[in-house]
Design a protein around this nucleic acid. Structure first.
Ligand SMILES: [Zn+2]
Ligand SMILES: [Zn+2]
Ligand SMILES: [Zn+2]
Ligand SMILES: [Zn+2]
Lengths: 176, 176
DNA sequence: GAGGTTAAGTTATAACATAACATAAGCAAA
DNA sequence: TTTGCTTATGTTATGTTATAACTTAACCTC
């Protein structure tokens, strides 16, 4: 099981997450002759500012602030489309939001563990889940093409806090 | 594994699907003292007209046609909200669409097998997937609350047709 | 630097969803 | 059977997410 759950949900040097992601992105684009333009790179960087998924219009606001000029929705959606296609980010359908992929180019489960309290989302690549789904599909004569697995609950941090103080939200706390 | 995949993807007397669903709904609402009003029942019936998920505005159009008067979005969303809360339907996040639940009141996987060709969606309750997810969450100290599992591919029918004629879409064919 | 290709800017609008407030229907007790 | 409470619906407006269509600019190749 390839998981970044521990990393996401524990204090860590998040600058390293960001720089590693950007390096991976540059390498991958160089290899495949794709253009990681300034806009695309900015959107990717924004998505790596935290381990929480961001919506298109949050990206729009933040990019406008950074670049000091108004940004129209298509600009964001085009960057997002590119990053999705190259596998550098994922879309989380139940949130209408996007998040950086910690292991592009590897095998994927498209499984996300999303905290309903703090909003963080951890991607998990889990080969036994993939196998189980695959065999389920085979039994049903269903030709599997893609999957979207989103599970909701309390991340380790928020679980602990719930137990400790009886359920006071930590939604505004940040644990990058 | 409790699956209605076979039923969904094979020719069957679909009137029985509809009437069974409505009977279940009436019983369930009677038991729990909930009001299955005409609007709510109409929306449920519309969602059972086929095994394809319908969006809110498709429901709006169709309900308007049936009732002979314009219907505003809130009417649909309220009915949908009620049916979701009572477990009679599900939302399919990646499609922004809704579909009737074939086994309300049972244990759920919230797992849908969605055909990318004909659009049909079959719900599957799969205890080993649930167990696997549960144990995965436990290992990660993640407190599972809810899940949304959507897998995409070709249903048995469309798989066959692809093999036979080399990939001509059957999106406009109906196999209720 | 001409010409093709890809990306970004711009404007408008489609598609999905909810807020807020007014009205009506259902129901239980006075 | 009126009163008053609760729940459901009607109505209008608006918020949120996503894309269409067309123009301009940047990039790359020859
Ligand atoms: Zn990924
Ligand atoms: Zn959390
Ligand atoms: Zn169900
Ligand atoms: Zn099909």
């Amino acid at each position: 099981m390839l998981s970044n759950s521990r990393l996401v949900h524990q204090p860590h040097d998040h600058r390293r997450c960001i720089s590693a992601a950007l390096t991976r992105a540059r390498d991958l684009c160089a290899e495949e002759n794709l253009r990681l333009t300034p806009t695309r790179e900015s959107v990717l960087r924004l998505l790596w500012q935290s381990h929480r998924p961001l919506g298109a219009y949050q990206l729009q606001d933040q990019l406008a602030k950074i670049s000091g000029k108004p940004i129209a929705p298509p600009t964001i959606y085009r960057a997002v489309e590119f990053l999705l296609k190259t596998g550098l980010i994922h879309r989380i359908a139940s949130l209408n939001a996007y998040i950086g992929c910690p292991f592009p180019n590897s095998d994927h489960s498209n499984l996300f563990m999303i905290c309903t309290d703090c909003g963080s989302a951890a991607e998990v690549a889990h080969s036994s889940i993939n196998k189980l789904l695959q065999s389920t599909c085979e039994k049903a004569n269903f030709t599997l093409q893609d999957q979207s697995l989103e599970i909701f609950g309390l991340c380790p941090n928020c679980s602990l806090q719930q137990q400790e103080n009886g359920g006071i939200s930590s939604a505004d706390k940040d644990h990058e």
